[in-house]
Amino acid sequence: MEPFSRSWAALRKAVAGLRDEEFGRPSGCAGWLVRDLVCHLVIDAQDVLITLVTPAAEEPTRDAVTYWEIVEAPTGDDPLDALIPRLAAAYQDPALLKFHLDDVGSAAGRAAELADPAVRVGTRGEVLTAGDYLSAYVLEWTLHHLDLIAHLPDAAEPPPEGLARSRELLEEIAGAAFPPSFSDKDALLIGTGRRAPGAAERAALGALDARLPLVLG
């Protein structure tokens, strides 16, 4: 549970430290501004709250790794993806968006701390233990933290333990390890297509290069 709490707290702190003008800058999510990404985080926090109070009696069907699926790159046609920029723009004042994330995000953080990791919960038609569900979200928080600061060079990076755990999850999803020469951050950025590998990095990837990027959904 600790990696979830630290990763989520660090991401929320990074958002709280944003200047108003930075909400209009591009994020690391293609087609989304920083304000759009923050709006998405509000929805993510709501999903965490809903899932943690949705008990399930069935045996788990997914774990922290199989929670994620490799999907096609988004085209912008998904209704929810298309809604996010319009919803984010409706806030107008970035302070309102900050407040909403702090309000819902703090509640999601408290719910995670109180959750029994062995309890089974339901989400997206699947069943997981709360511990596996929250562990899966370490990857979500870490990738979106990198997205948030993609064009904000002075912003704090995700916690090292969150980067390391996210790399482990991504390697398990891929069924292959990234080269030891890759930092955790570079493994995540290159592995998910957020940064193109250089020639030397491509050579180090070997056969794995042909399978990238891993777009997760």
Rank of each mutant, 00 (worst) to 15 (best):
204 A>N: 04
2 E>T: 15
34 V>A: 10
49 L>D: 09
105 G>R: 05
215 V>G: 06
175 G>R: 04
121 V>S: 02
203 A>K: 07
109 G>H: 02
16 A>G: 10
127 V>P: 01
208 L>M: 15
93 D>R: 05
102 D>E: 13
103 D>Q: 06
93 D>E: 12
102 D>H: 07
11 L>N: 05
104 V>N: 01
108 A>F: 01
91 Y>L: 09
143 L>V: 08
35 R>C: 12
139 L>W: 04
186 D>T: 12
18 L>R: 00
151 H>Q: 13
121 V>E: 03
200 A>E: 07
125 G>T: 00
93 D>N: 09
3 P>C: 14
53 V>M: 09
8 W>H: 12
86 R>N: 13
182 F>H: 06
112 A>H: 10
4 F>G: 14
87 L>A: 07
179 P>N: 06
6 R>V: 11
130 A>I: 05
12 R>S: 02
36 D>T: 09
10 A>D: 08
156 A>E: 15
19 R>P: 00
208 L>T: 15
91 Y>R: 11
64 A>F: 12
91 Y>C: 08
41 L>W: 06
19 R>E: 13
98 K>T: 09
209 D>K: 12
187 A>M: 11
49 L>E: 07
157 E>W: 06
22 E>I: 02
69 E>K: 15
82 A>V: 12
193 G>I: 11
34 V>M: 13
60 P>E: 13
168 E>A: 05
140 E>I: 01
119 V>T: 10
152 L>R: 15
180 P>D: 12
37 L>D: 07
195 R>V: 00
126 E>G: 01
80 L>D: 11
53 V>A: 11
199 A>W: 13
18 L>W: 05
70 I>W: 14
181 S>H: 03
173 I>M: 01
47 D>E: 08
91 Y>H: 14
198 G>W: 01
67 Y>K: 12
68 W>Q: 14
171 E>W: 02
197 P>M: 03
120 R>L: 02
140 E>V: 02
188 L>N: 11
